[in-house]
Design a binder for these strands. Structure first.
Length: 614
DNA sequence: CGAGTTTGACCTGCGC
DNA sequence: GCGCAGGTCAAACTCG
């Protein structure tokens, strides 16, 4: 499969470069590292033996000293990394406790958060910085508690008028934000919706197109009906575009096909699936081939699983959940007509490639750029697309490995949405589509920031790019966003002449300054990094692996590094693999996966089933 | 025989 | 109000 081959190519390429993944695969690597490879001289020394007359004792001593110094450096580095790991683990535990407190004792949230914030490690990780991303659904009895949290968050948002995201139960970019705007919010009846809307959808309380199914006994519970009443439209959808030969992405879940339809504008039929892992699971997905490129499989997810997810399904679920959350939070504000003067906007789509999240919204009222109706998400369905495809090699690529916008899942470029939320998992190679080898670009536009600059034409676009920094372009986005965030007029993409240190500094500032970035990063990284480990069999020690991977990344970010390479066959395969590790250590709080035994389709995907047939 | 798929009919929302 | 298109249902069918 394509991704598999891509992986192998990448593996070769990075064989001689520092690999976080490799290191993570070998927890005891520091031991290995303590014995640095022999230098040529050393080797010759060893080979020549003590009788070698060419080396004087002094030379030997020098070499010995050099080796010692080198070793010292390595050990020092090890210590530093260990310290970092410990710190991150502490953070993780603290966050976990915080979550626990939130879930168990919602009334204590503030207290606990204050308490925690007094902790050393919490100095920078305050409540507003947290990402609570849960894929499965919280138990119903917890929903209330979370609603309380959400309401609190909402109040805080209103009070603080601070930029940020506010999401709900399942995926919270729990930040304070200004009263934002959101037409989205305004459209909702319940004042609590601003925060609950996402959670409700994401918690599986989500309702499918209203009205439908109410007549017959459907899966919807009373709560869900409630939700659908409160939230008649605006079902967040996450569209995943991936090159895939199989009929469906194997995302780890069990799906049952319940319908098929030829949609207008696309000769390929669209198949409708619903999750059958749990009988009442509201999650559905649509699968359709891209009309322009039959190799591209467009999978649209809607809803959130209300049951524990199989390991193999958590990654995709987390990714889509995060994306949906971003979408919904991002959609909370709107303004149009201003084309972002950003790297994105100024970069020709044709020159770009890679994996992208892009946000689209069929809703005119929300004034996101409109999706084309080809695979039309219904107007009431804001859609975020995770583009795991790559442009053909012909597209010039290396010069601009990033960001491409497409107007719809069928990918008709370029539209340049005035507002866009985009997580970009671009690959640095034209036809390589690997999450962990790609760049992560988290763009937040004003909807997120929701700041007072809304009336300006200056779209704030913030990019965080992770990845191969030997290529300058990624940093340019960061730089650009930084400049923009600081209201520095910067109409065009920054020129490559900017010094790397500058861009690094800018990137660092961007990351540290904006909790939204951190949140989005955390979500995206959870998927990306989680995928970095390995094989499905290697599902243990995931937390530490992940955490240390994150740490590595954090450590390495300022310097040249390669992100861990994941194995990705079909884009979903990688997700399967990633899930095991993404779960425990990430900032996502997933419900404990339960091994699902399905007598029939262990693969869990109808596509697999069909594969057998075919 | 049970689970999953196929497929035509039906329902609903939206635009004109 | 009408027609269209998306989405869903459910009976029939297939498969293991």
């Amino acid at each position: 499969m394509e991704f598999g081959s891509q992986r192998s190519v990448k593996d070769e390429k990075r064989s001689d470069e520092f690999s976080v993944e490799d290191e993570e695969d070998r927890p005891d690597k520091d031991i290995v590292m303590q014995e640095p490879p022999l230098t040529t001289n050393e080797r010759s020394t060893v080979e020549a033996g003590p009788n070698a007359s060419s080396l004087t004792k002094k030379e030997e001593a020098d070499e010995l000293e050099n080796a010692k110094a080198e070793m010292g450096k390595v050990m020092e580095e090890n210590q530093r990394l260990k310290g970092c790991l410990n710190r991150i683990l502490n953070d993780y535990r603290t966050l976990q406790m915080q979550l626990h407190n939130v879930v168990e004792h919602p009334q204590d949230i503030k207290d606990s958060s204050e308490k925690v914030s007094s902790d050393d490690h919490q100095e920078t990780v305050n409540e507003s910085d947290l990402v609570f991303l849960s894929l499965g659904r919280l138990p119903r009895n917890n929903e209330k508690a979370n609603k309380v949290v959400s309401n609190k968050a909402l109040k805080e948002e209103e009070e603080e008028d601070k930029e940020g995201l506010s999401l709900g139960l399942e995926c919270k970019f729990e930040t304070s934000k200004s009263g934002s705007t959101t037409e989205h919010l305004q459209n909702t009846q319940s004042p609590t919706n601003s925060v609950e809307e996402v959670p409700k959808e994401e918690t599986g309380g989500e309702s499918w197109p209203s009205g439908k199914g109410n007549k017959t006994t459907r899966d919807h519970t009373t709560v869900e009906d409630e939700v659908s009443q409160q939230n008649p439209a605006k079902k967040a959808r996450v569209c995943v575009r991936a090159r895939c030969d199989t009929p469906t992405l194997n995302d780890g879940c069990q799906w049952r096909k319940y319908g098929q339809k030829i949609s207008k504008g696309n000769p390929c039929p669209r198949a409708y699936y619903r999750c059958t892992v749990a009988p009442s699971c509201p999650v559905r997905k649509q699968v359709q081939r891209c009309a322009q490129d039959m190799t591209i499989l467009i999978t649209t997810y809607e809803g959130t699983h209300n049951h524990p997810l199989p390991l193999s399904a958590t990654a995709m679920a987390s990714t889509t959940s995060a994306a949906a959350s971003m979408l919904l939070s991002g959609s909370s504000t709107s303004h149009s007509g201003t084309r972002p003067s950003t790297t994105m906007a100024t970069t020709s789509v044709a020159d770009l490639h890679g994996m992208n999240f892009f946000l689209s919204d069929g809703s005119k009222s929300k004034q996101f750029y409109l999706s084309q109706p080809a695979l039309s998400s219904s107007p009431s369905h804001p859609t975020i697309t995770l583009d795991l495809t790559s442009n053909p090699p012909s597209s010039s690529s290396s010069s601009a490995p990033f960001v491409k916008f497409s107007s719809n899942p069928n990918y008709n470029p370029p539209r340049y949405p005035p507002n866009s939320t985009s997580l970009n998992f671009s690959s640095s190679e034209s036809n390589a589509t690997s999450w962990s080898n790609g760049f992560l670009t988290y763009n937040t536009t004003q909807p997120y920031n929701n700041n007072r600059n809304m009336n300006t034409n200056m779209n704030i676009l913030s990019n965080i790019n992770l990845g191969r920094l030997q290529q300058q372009q990624p940093m340019e986005n960061i730089y650009s966003s930084y400049m923009q965030r600081n209201n520095i007029n910067h109409v065009h993409a920054p020129s490559p002449q900017h010094s790397l240190p500058d861009t690094i500094a800018a990137a660092t500032k961007v990351i540290t300054a904006d909790p939204n970035f951190q949140s989005a990063l955390a979500a995206a990284l959870s998927s990306m990094i989680g995928s970095g480990s390995n094989t499905q069999g290697n599902q243990q020690g995931g937390a530490e692996n992940l955490m240390s991977q994150k740490m590595k990344w954090g450590e390495l970010f300022p310097s040249s590094s390669a992100l861990p390479t994941s194995s990705s066959k079909c884009s979903s395969s990688f997700l399967n693999k990633s899930s095991a590790n993404s779960q425990p250590g990430s900032l996502m709080f997933l419900q404990p996966p339960v091994p699902l035994s399905s007598p029939k389709s262990a693969s869990g995907s109808p596509g697999d089933h069909r594969d057998k047939k075919n």
